[in-house]
């Protein structure tokens, strides 16, 4: 005896989706999606060429220096060791490709996420609209949207970056929205009372005061994009993800581990630096201009002592 509805009828949703994607979305919108690829392709190519062109010794000098200015001595020492180790392991080139992918993905996340976050902070309606979309983006497993991405964008490193953007975008939007909404209402009132326009209010008051939260969002986005590296390799993105992926395919445990170590080192390095950037915005407590100045000229000392204590 039939006791379930599906014994009589199964909703052919899978067929419908297939039809919609294959028969309608792909033939009609492929050119549009291809056009979307263009800016990502440009930035990615430019970064990759640039990073691979830079002589290795420049990296050995530059990365620890940046780490020292921003995050203090400890992180600088770690950065130096990491840069040396990545080369010793023979995965320097892969690391640079992954780094350029990550930077591209994060750059687009910021470009899209910050304005959307600001919009969401200003309009409750927009926030209500975008929230379920963000929930879906965060809960849907990336493997699900790899297929349509391949159909629309093809395979390669750019589709990999696009998948990464989809995966890593939500925290940028959410935390920008949160940061701006958390700015004390009396400060916003003060801005308005002195005749600030909405744009002045945004750039003079809301964004500077939300900067710390926005930077936390950037950090989250960065970490999420790193965790997409291997998955993106499934659709043809190169770099460290590919090293892991090929190691997996050949059951070459050593090769897979190399890729893994590279990703972890890169993740820790980027995490420490961006976290210190976020805290710098808060600890400086002066103008944002000054905290960036501090960051360039004398920030190292301050944060160094904080780290050492």
């Amino acid at each position: 005896m039939a006791d379930r509805l599906s014994d009589f009828y199964t909703l052919p949703l899978d067929d419908w989706i297939e039809v919609v994607v294959k028969e309608w979305l792909v033939p009609n919108f492929r050119p549009a999606f291809q056009a979307l690829q263009w800016p990502i392709d440009q930035l990615l190519g430019w970064l990759e060429d640039g990073l691979l062109w830079l002589p290795y010794p420049v990296f050995v000098a530059m990365v620890p220096l940046i780490a020292w200015r921003v995050a203090g001595t400890r992180v600088a020492i770690f950065a130096l060791s990491a840069v040396l180790l990545l080369d010793l392991l023979g995965i320097w080139q892969e690391t640079m490709i992954t780094l350029s992918m990550i930077i591209t993905a994060v750059a687009f996340c910021v470009m899209v996420g910050v304005p959307l976050g600001i919009l969401a902070a200003r309009s409750d309606r927009f926030a209500g609209l975008i929230r379920p979309v963000l929930d879906i983006m965060q809960t849907i497993p990336p493997f699900v949207y790899l297929v349509p991405i391949v159909m629309l964008f093809g395979v390669g490193i750019v589709p990999g970056v696009i998948a990464t953007i989809i995966f890593a975008l939500p925290p940028m939007i959410r935390l920008t929205n949160l940061g701006i909404r958390q700015v004390q209402s009396e400060l916003v009132e003060a801005g308005l009372a002195f005749g600030a326009s909405r744009r002045q209010l945004l750039f003079e008051i809301q964004i500077p005061l939300a900067l710390r939260t926005i930077m936390a969002g950037l950090n989250q986005t960065l970490m999420l994009s790193l965790s997409m590296v291997v998955i993106a390799a499934l659709i043809g993105a190169g770099g460290l993800g590919l090293t892991v992926f090929t190691g997996l395919g050949r059951l070459d445990i050593g090769r897979a581990s190399l890729g893994g170590i590279g990703i972890v080192l890169l993740a820790i390095l980027l995490d420490r630096i961006t976290q210190a950037l976020g805290e710098g915005g808060q600890a400086g407590r002066g103008s944002t201009k000054r905290s960036f100045r501090q960051l360039l000229f004398k920030g190292g000392r301050q944060h160094g002592t904080e780290d050492d204590s």
């Binding site: 009396e186 400060l187 009132e189 003060a190 008051i205 500077p208 005061l209 407590r285 944002t288």
Partner: peptide, 12 residues
Amino acid sequence: SMVFQHFALFPH
């Protein structure tokens, strides 16, 4: 112009 109870100075 306006003066506020909790000062409302911009900390940044």
